[in-house]
Design a protein around this nucleic acid. Sequence first.
RNA 1: GGCUCGUUCGUCUAGGGGUUAGGACGCCGCCCUCUCAAGGCGGUAACACGGGUUCGAUUCCCGUACGGGCUACCA
Length: 472
Amino acid sequence: MSDVKNPKVRFAPSPTGQLHLGSARTALFNYLYAKHHDGTFYLRIEDTDKARSKQEYVEQICSSLEWLGIKWDGEPLFQSTRLNEYHDVVLTLLENNSAYRCFCSKDALETARVGGSYQYPGTCRNLSEEDIKLHMNSGEGFVVRLRVPEGETHFDDMIYGAVHVKHEEIDDFIIARSDGQPTYNLVVVVDDHEMEITHIIRGEDHISNTPKQILIYTAMGYAVPKFAHLPMILGQDKKRLSKRHGAPGVQEFKNEGYLPDALLNYLALLGWNPGSDEEIFTLDELIALFEMSHVHKKSAVYDEQKLSWISGQHMVRLGTAKILEGIHAINADWGQGFETNYLYAILEQLKQRSKSLRDFIDQSSYFFTDPQSYDEKSSRKNWKNVATSQIINVYKKRLESIEQWDANVIESTLRMTAEENDISAGKLIHPTRLALSGVSNGPSLFILMAILGKDVCIRRLNKALEIFPLQS
RNA sequence: GGCUCGUUCGUCUAGGGGUUAGGACGCCGCCCUCUCAAGGCGGUAACACGGGUUCGAUUCCCGUACGGGCUACCA
C-alpha cells in the first residue's frame, strides 16, 4: 500500500510543563506512523530554554509516555548536551556566507517596527569586513541571522499538500542569540539531520517554521526530510486546548482512572479516521490501521463525553485482572484484606457500570463495609412501613435456613416469599437492596447477595430491620 | 494588520456533481428488566452565506462571514 520503509520519526517536547493532550496526540501519531511502517520512534528533549525547562517535567513527560504505552527507541536526546554541535553549524553557516552577524540592538529594532511590517530591515546584511571588525573590536554584542535568499521555498506536506512560501515573507531570522545560544529553528534542523529523521510529524503551529528550517537544511547541504503537520485540538469554545478547558495533562487522565488505551483510542480519532465505522481499538490495532492519508487538516474539538464512552467500551473489554491492576495503581488500598476471587467477582459486576477505574472504587464501598447510611429517596419509597419490615423479616428467616447459598436459590426463595404474601417481587427486592447496599442501584440483587455471602446479608438485614421504617 | 489553513448534525466524522447525505458520542423514546448500567430497536439533528461553472451543486471555482495557526534573541 505504501512505499515508506523504516521511517525515523521523533517526538520532541520541551520540558516546560507536563505532557498535554495535544502533545500526547502528536507523540501518538508519530508512534503510529513509525510502527505502522516498521520505523523508529525517537524521543528528543528540547531543553535549550534554560529559564523554563525543568528536570521534573522531563521526568513527568517520560512517565506519561510510558504510562500511555508509547515506547521510544534508544535513549532520549537532550539538546542541552549538544551546544557545541550547534555552535559549529553556526560557524559553518557564517563561513559559507549563508548567515551574517547583526549588531543591531533589540531596542533599536523594536522602535523601528512600524505599521504592519515586522521584518528585519536588513541593516547589517551587507556589512563590509572592516565594519564587522570594527563592531567586533568595540566589543559590541551581535546575533547571527540567516541570509534568506530571494525566491521561494516549497514543500509537499503529507497532510497540507503543496505549500509555497515567498521569501519576502520570511525574515532574516536569528539562528544564534547575542549570548551565543542557538535558536529553535537552527537546533531542530541540526538534530533532525544528526538523528537522520526522515519524517517530521508535528503540530500545525509549526508549519510556518518549516520553510525557515528548509532554508537551513539547504544552506548546510542537508537532505530535507518529509513533513506532516497535524491539526490542532480545540476546546469547546473553539479556542486552542489548554489547562483552562479542564483537559490538562495526561497525568490527570491517569489519576481520573482512564485507561491508557482508551485515551489513545480517543486521541487517534481526533483528526484521523480508520476508514470504517469501527471506533474501539487497542494500540496494536491503531498501529495496523494508521494511515497518514486519513489524517485531515481540520482542527477538532475535544469532547470528554466521547472519551468517557470510549473508556467505558474499553472497560467492558478488559480482563478483570487488568482492571484490578489498574485500580491498585491509583489506589493501592482498594479491597485490601479481601480475597482476589471476591474482588474479581465485584469487578465483573461493576464492569458494565464503570467508565473509569475511579467508578469502580466509587461504586464498590458496600462490598467491603456495611452501609453507614441509606439512600433517603429509596428509604422513603421502598421501605415505607412496618408491613415491609414484616415481610423482610420473613424473607430473612428463610435465608437463614438456606444451605446452598447461590443466586438461584436466593432468588427463588424471594419470589416464593413474595408470591405467598401476595405482593410483587419488587416490593421485596428494593428494600432488600437498600438494606444490603444502602443505595438503590447496582448489580442484580441476587448476584449481589451471592457475592456478599450469607453472614453479611443476614447481618445487614438485621441492622436494617432495627432502623426501618425511618419514621411512621 | 500581513501570510496561511479550515468550514457536513451540538461534538467526532464518512461521503462527494444526480444519495432518503451514512456512522459514532450526546439527547429523547421503546424493548429487556429487581434498580442502575450494558445491550437491542427507533427518533432528534448537518452540507456557513452569496455569486458563478453545469442539464444538475452539499461536492468544482471566486468572494464574504466565521474559526484556527503563524507573525519572538520561546520551543
